[in-house]
């Protein structure tokens, strides 16, 4: 579904990604971890070309992401993206945040789009909050709306960049519950997270990055119990003590 072939990313003098190679199968849930500044976010953001890659090849669902002939806007509609900071549109209600893509991009009639958006919101327990503006929602509610906004577009792939890092501890649970349900479906998921329990439970594979390189790919149990790479060992050891 997603194939990285020696993907590198350079900003002027900073090498953010160095020859990352790996592939993610359809329906696979990949948990991306590593210390901060290791290139996790950058890697996730190359998949929908929020970051252009400098060299290498990145093929997503059969499409070469760097290909200039690709209609990037249509391509992105098939990939849900959820960021740490939710980034809901503050001038729209929760319902409108979810329906705007259906209505403006997928050209669904407004009523249909809103009905579908409502259905999605109800499924995550936000029906009563549908007509509230983001400013009136809690962090956990905002992030659930953001996830639903991405899901409503019926993507094949979900990219999640630390979806729970900006949440107060008591709100992490509600978002993780939602992500658990997601992971059980047949979505292909690439998720940056520091939630180890979550990673263990729902991840099919852990990708460990450091210094812009993908250093280890392993099933969660093996990764957390006996990491192979020295940097991964340090990382896991630090987590155990934290």
């Amino acid at each position: 579904m997603i194939v990285f072939e020696k993907v590198s990313k350079r900003y002027r003098s900073f090498q953010a990604l160095t020859e990352v190679s790996g592939h993610i199968r359809r329906g696979e849930v990949v948990v991306l971890c590593g210390p901060s500044g290791s290139g996790k976010s950058t890697l996730v953001r190359t998949v929908n070309r929020l970051e252009e890659i400098s060299s290498g090849r990145l093929v997503v669902d059969g499409v070469d992401v760097s290909d200039r002939r690709v209609n990037i806007n249509e391509f992105r509609r098939g990939i849900g993206f959820v960021a740490q900071q939710f980034n809901l549109f503050p001038h729209l209600t929760a319902l409108q945040n979810v329906s705007i893509g259906l209505y403006r991009l997928l050209k669904m009639p407004l009523r249909e789009a809103e009905a579908l958006a409502m259905e999605h919101l109800s499924r995550v327990g936000l029906a009563a909050r549908a007509h509230r503006y983001p400013a009136d929602l809690s962090g956990g509610e905002k992030q659930r709306v953001a996830i639903v906004r991405a899901l409503a577009m019926n993507p094949k792939i979900m990219l999640l960049d630390e979806p729970t890092s900006a949440l107060d501890p008591e709100m992490v649970g509600e978002v993780l519950n939602l992500l658990r349900t997601l992971a059980k479906g047949n979505l292909t998921i690439l998720c940056v997270t520091h939630e180890l329990g979550f990673a263990r439970e729902v991840g099919d594979t852990v990708w460990f990055m450091d210094g812009g390189r993908l250093l280890e790919v392993a099933p969660p149990d093996r990764f957390f119990s006996s990491p192979q790479h020295p940097r991964a060992r340090e990382f896991v050891a630090a987590l155990d003590h934290g």
Partner: peptide
């Protein structure tokens, strides 16, 4: 308007003008 707003919209598939 925070830059992230533009990014969130582009990531959903909105074009520059949209």
């Amino acid at each position: 308007v925070p830059k992230a707003q533009r990014e969130a919209a582009r990531a959903m598939g909105f074009s520059f003008l949209q």
